[in-house]
Design a protein around this nucleic acid. Structure first.
Lengths: 212, 212
DNA sequence: CGTGCGATGTATCGGTCCGATACATCGCGG
DNA sequence: CCGCGATGTATCGGACCGATACATCGCACG
């Protein structure tokens, strides 16, 4: 999962670890806390060893200042490679069971702008199926095994059931949206990625979510 | 977390691994999928080594059948010890930061029936604080950084924000409930635990949740 | 009658990720 | 001038997962 997220983020712009963590936290804040450095750095090394990313020279901030005295150690900037982009595309398209658990789905969803519509639909439907199963499990427990459980446990299940029902409705909306309107896909920048500051803005008016 | 859950469950009745996993799944179904045996068995061994649990003889199911031929290997039934109960009480009462993350809170909450009211209140308020922080983080991203993010990522944040707000409201309810009405605490069965089949039924009418 | 299959049951292994910790630099305010 | 919070890289032990292996039991189907 981390691998996918890193590859996805580095496609927007080269970054060093610290920055990567912040962006990761911003992008995935809804589904998980903050990525630990204990996962991040080893994963970066793994990705580099595999050739998906490379170290890039730290740009000296428009030159002008800090000539050469302080030797500028630390601050390793990573950049995605062409192979890395292929790897990302492969990871994004292939759906295993882990694609539908909370974290897996969240990460995949966060990069839907780089995913083709068919895959998006497949993932949304798989997720819905999974949540429906969880929902049924909770209903069963609340129905059949209710008397064996104490009031607090029961309340926990009720809250969980509520969350499931809500998420299913959300997914339905997204699926319907996906089927009818063509949601925009960010066009791949091409293998020879020339530093784009201007990130493709999401086409307006695709999510008419009608929040009152 | 697993340790706490196992100790809690074994206080209701002795069980073997498979059974433990099923009960665990039933009790914690709202917050996590199913516990892996790859965690369960090593943890059981750890708990046994520490003296919190012991192996118990597998009761031959009212005797009568299966006299002695099939040697009855496999099926290790675990039982909590007096030290294990102390350990549980200690774990349940001590609150660290991990008490308030999704899993930690869920497990603690699931055993609220064995937790004193002051601790319950402390945990509920800690959890509320944590969720409020997450909520503020999401609001910030949706406000300040909205233009940097694509429509899908934004939608993910909105959904997360919604879940946060909902959980805060749920917690408020629980806290208010806890403060006014005295919620029941399952009386400790005592250190010399005499096999109780009849589980203390939760007092009725404590959660007036008024679900329409 | 057998046979195969799904539920029950115990167990290990490699891998991912987390939390704690350590350490170094930089700019700013007291 | 000194400390402190933000920035920044890095490692280590431990928790937990997913895959896998293997053995038993009962029963349904041919």
């Amino acid at each position: 999962m981390l691998e996918l997220a890193i590859l996805g983020l580095l496609q927007e712009s080269p970054m060093h670890g610290y920055e990567l963590r912040k962006e990761l936290t911003a992008k995935l804040g809804a589904i998980r806390a903050a990525i630990s450095y204990g996962s991040l750095y080893p994963t970066l090394r793994r990705l580099q060893a595999a050739g998906w990313i490379t170290e890039a020279a730290d740009p000296p901030a428009t030159a002008e200042e800090v000539p050469a005295l302080t030797s500028r150690r630390g601050r390793v900037v990573y950049e995605i490679t062409a192979e890395g982009k292929e790897r990302f595309a492969q990871l994004i398209a292939q759906t295993g069971p882990e694609t539908y658990d909370d974290t897996g789905f969240g990460v995949h969803f966060a990069f839907f702008a780089r995913t083709d519509q068919a895959t998006r639909l497949r993932i949304l439907e798989g997720r819905r199926r999974k949540i429906e199963e969880r929902r049924e499990g909770l209903r069963d427990v609340l129905g059949r095994a209710a008397e064996r459980l104490d009031a607090y446990t029961l309340e926990l299940q009720r809250h969980g059931l509520d969350a499931c029902e809500r998420e299913v409705r959300w997914l339905e909306e997204l699926i319907a949206n996906e089927r009818s309107g063509r949601a925009p896909t960010v066009p791949s920048t091409g293998t020879a990625g020339g530093r784009r500051e201007d990130n493709s803005p999401p086409a307006p008016g695709e999510f008419r979510n009608e929040r009152p």
